[in-house]
């Protein structure tokens, strides 16, 4: 493996694949940080399962990106030898775990998008992507159910839990707009029916989130100002720290096989 960060030839397809793979890896990594520290032992199992699903999705997408780029990269060079500005994930995915409530709200926001997104992507004209979508759709559907049930319980639980989870909704809300962005690169793929334009999923997402938050007796933030930048590598401060941990061994022993 190379000793420094790799350079990736980001054709629209490669860029697209890295974006989706990075979402899954970074969020999966965040969930893996919970291991041994969960509020309930049964929930550690659940967080582990969701994390494993996401890491699995990331691996399939990186594998396809490697094939599409055909420049000698693989899932591990993509994951371990790109620095933060080369990562293409949503800002939402890299936000810290916070308390269990914040982790569940982050998961809800993402899964409420990923579920309809992958379902729509099963109709992709690209057979590999359609296959990844078919697997991811089922996984995301469960993640959505699981996180919804928890947000409802935390929102409509005790005074303390209500306050905590409302705070989590408010904190994470500005990171939700980015999911629906579709830039020029992605537009070309959408025009060719390789991918779908995520923007029209907004209504479904609003409906899902509205219903869950209402059952949870939580309120939707009114401010519509959204943070953005993850898709082009302009991240929050958190990602660098995450990568410094994740890439520690690879970066310390350049060129070694593990």
């Amino acid at each position: 493996m190379a000793t420094t960060s790799i350079q990736v030839n980001e054709t629209p397809l490669v860029l697209y694949l890295l974006r989706r793979a990075d979402d899954a890896l970074i969020l999966g990594h965040r969930l893996s940080e919970w291991i041994g520290l969960g509020p309930i032992l049964e929930e550690e199992m659940a967080l582990g399962n969701i994390g494993l699903d996401l890491i699995g999705q990331a691996r399939s997408l990186y594998a396809y990106a490697a094939e599409a780029e055909a420049a000698g990269n693989d899932e591990d060079t993509f994951a371990y030898l790109r620095d933060a500005p080369q990562y293409r994930n949503l800002l939402l995915a890299e936000q810290p775990n916070g308390d269990f409530g914040q982790t569940m709200v982050r998961q809800l926001f993402y899964s409420a998008f990923a579920d309809p997104y992958w379902r729509a992507m099963t109709a992709s004209g690209d057979a590999t992507l359609a296959a990844v979508a078919a697997k991811s759709e089922k996984e995301s559907a469960y993640h959505l159910r699981h996180s919804s049930e928890w947000v409802i319980r935390l929102g409509d639980g005790t005074q303390e839990s209500h306050a905590r989870v409302q705070e989590a909704v408010d904190v994470l809300w500005p990171y939700t707009g980015e999911m629906f962005e579709c830039d020029a690169a992605e537009r070309t793929l959408a025009d060719g029916r390789t991918v779908i334009d995520p923007a029209p999923l907004r209504d479904a997402w609003d409906g899902t989130i509205g219903a869950v938050l209402s059952r949870a007796t939580l309120t939707l933030p009114q401010n519509g100002w959204m943070q953005s930048g993850g898709r082009t590598g302009r991240h929050s401060e958190h990602l660098g720290h995450l990568l410094s941990t994740m890439q520690h061994v690879q970066r310390t022993y350049p060129g070694a096989a593990w």
């Binding site: 309930i40 049964e42 929930e43 199992m45 659940a46 399962n49 699981h146 049930e149």
Partner: peptide
């Protein structure tokens, strides 16, 4: 067996614990 506050959480936990 397992512990859970209600039947919905119990069903989810059973899925994660016993059907991996």
């Amino acid at each position: 067996s397992l512990h859970a506050a209600d039947s919905t959480l119990a069903l989810q936990a059973a899925r994660d614990l016993y059907t991996r």
